[in-house]
Design a binder for these strands. Structure first.
Lengths: 124, 124
DNA sequence: ACAATATATGAATACTTGTTCATATGTTCA
DNA sequence: TGAACATATGAACAAGTATTCATATATTGT
């Protein structure tokens, strides 16, 4: 009558099977969760974060970004490719110079909320 | 008179030094950018994303989470430690069972925005 | 005190990832 | 056409990370 018969050994079975099944119902599809992790993975690198913050302010060419961040042109170019594939930045070519700019409206507010989190956390 | 004297060779110097210096002024401190990357890194893994989505719905013990996600108790325990260190989850002990729950208000809305981004992106 | 069990953790391993180095591509200017 | 230059890219390497395995810790019930 109480919460019996769910209980077996852990490792294999759940302790509260009712809770587990209820939660399972609400889980988004695996594929969406995977995409979401992929999306956030892009923000999990200081170089890419710095590039995006720079682009908040102004469109910039590869060379300028490299100079600003004190990094090699190659390193920046590789990271811009990651950002491009994630559709976070777009680019336009002017002669041999390529200007990158933001291609997403959510980034800033996502960053702001992250910023808020770490600020609150660090004052505890 | 035009945009001269900024221009030297890339790799070493910037093409638009004025732009670079203007952007440099607005960059948040390195330490903050680093923390931000650390913060998002936590979301860059499917297992942790899945754990957090589960906890959106209900507090859960380690064993139930492992069962729900079809993973080992050890793997879940390791990941919960990461989430704990990031102050994203908290826990309470009841006997030998440890219940984890969310410890942050921003997570859901950050996830929602990420979700929105990938949805928009995938319909282009 | 002892067996059973829920969780935590250190070490090892396989995999991923960021940067560098060398080089390729494509554009401009003489 | 050729030299200079901005950017892109593949391969290699180093550093980081997620999971497993074995085991430790702590709690419960007998």
């Amino acid at each position: 009558m109480t919460e019996n018969n769910n209980i077996e050994r852990c490792e294999v079975t759940a302790i509260h099977e009712d809770v587990v099944e209820a939660v399972r119902e609400t889980m988004p599809p695996e594929e969406k969760l995977f995409s979401l992790a992929e999306f956030f993975k892009v923000f999990g690198d200081t170089t890419r974060i710095r590039i995006l913050y720079a682009l908040f302010q102004s469109d910039m060419c590869v060379c300028d970004i490299a100079y600003l961040l004190g990094m090699s042109q190659s390193a920046i170019s590789h990271q811009l490719r990651v950002l491009k594939q994630a559709k976070l930045v777009k680019f336009r070519k002017e002669g041999r110079v390529v200007y990158y700019s933001l291609d997403d409206d959510h980034i800033k507010s996502i960053f702001d909320q992250g910023y808020q989190h770490i600020s609150e956390r660090d004052t505890d």
